[in-house]
Design a protein around this nucleic acid. Sequence first.
DNA 1: ACAAAAGTGTTGAACCTACACCCATGC
DNA 2: GCATGGGTGTAGGTTCAACACTTTTGT
Lengths: 209, 209
Amino acid sequence: MGTAAVVVVIFTVTHGELSVLLIERAAAPCRGQWALPGGVLRGEETLDGAASRKLADESGVSDVFLEQLFTFDHLAESTAGVVVAYFALVDVARTRLRPDLEWRPAWHPVRALPPLAFENERIIAYAEQRLRNKLEYTNVVYSLLPSRFTLTEMQRVYEAILGEAMDKRNFRRRVVGLGIVRETGSTRKLGAHRPAMLYEFTRREPMVL
Amino acid sequence: MGTAAVVVVIFTVTHGELSVLLIERAAAPCRGQWALPGGVLRGEETLDGAASRKLADESGVSDVFLEQLFTFDHLAESTAGVVVAYFALVDVARTRLRPDLEWRPAWHPVRALPPLAFENERIIAYAEQRLRNKLEYTNVVYSLLPSRFTLTEMQRVYEAILGEAMDKRNFRRRVVGLGIVRETGSTRKLGAHRPAMLYEFTRREPMVL
DNA sequence: ACAAAAGTGTTGAACCTACACCCATGC
DNA sequence: GCATGGGTGTAGGTTCAACACTTTTGT
């Protein structure tokens, strides 16, 4: 009851849908149900350290956007006193999920979640809200895309998260005008005679616009 | 080490300055130093419940803006494993500080804090930042003012927190135009023949604009 | 042929900022 | 008479949202 635990909401965008990484619990309590990756703090570990470790363990990535979200208490069926939730944004192409026989991790679209243990629905809903807010006034999306990408790909990510179509010209003007991305100079070949400009983020780290 | 504690950053505006409630510690550790009100969780108490209790104990008010801020760990000299910080906004006119012989509470301007225990400077700085942000896109200021007030009084609160003078006409247009305050119809007598319009918040509860 | 993705400008509305003076009162 | 606080309108700039068509390729 007195111990603190950490859970991580790991988001990605894949197949045009905002998705979250869940693991199927192989042990009690809530065996067989899906839940967010997490666990109790080890020894002298810091909260950030524990979240970062969990993220790396389950998704295989580090050096991505990872931030403390909220601290929950008295979650149903939980044995931990307080649960410090984090949220992370990863480019699905860089992840390597480990299908250990049990505890196997899988991506689930946030619009179609299975039943979850420990009221994890609340945590995910809160994280999704925060993500939508941060999209508007920060460059966090850098953490969901590869280092080079077309503006249409970037726009697809925004649309998947916000759940609404955007105007292409306004979108381009905004992201280029604010200086959050710049042209790389190189292009991607779409066909024999059709180059598409590739962009990159001016900073691959959190910034407030 | 495994236990969770709660601290509360209680802000008010008085004498035109943003101030925070501190207590002088009467017991070890850090006896004699100033610190934020706080303590460990009692039994089955929730985090919100503990924060609310602390707020009421030290300031005598409830039913004000109170929100979880951030969870800190490994604070210097702290015996608690994790410290869940909250922040609250109160109208100084409604508070009743209890000058118990020891642990006596007092308001301190955030621009002139005494040396603090447990790295409480960090917590206060973080809370102040969050407060400034919330001023811009919410109506949280309702919790710093009495139920009826003049627009100049309201503007003074904004100026004290943001630390910059604002244009009176633009300010009035904004707050009335956004519908966060409305005229009450009644006035305050400034002199024999000089009424000043009193305003009230359309909602005395948190709202995002 | 059709669908998918890249690319490209203009216009009107809304919003934001800067700015100056009058009046009544208390000291 | 001077400082304090309430009260009032406008003009210019910036930002935002809405809007349609062309090109090339793959199926």
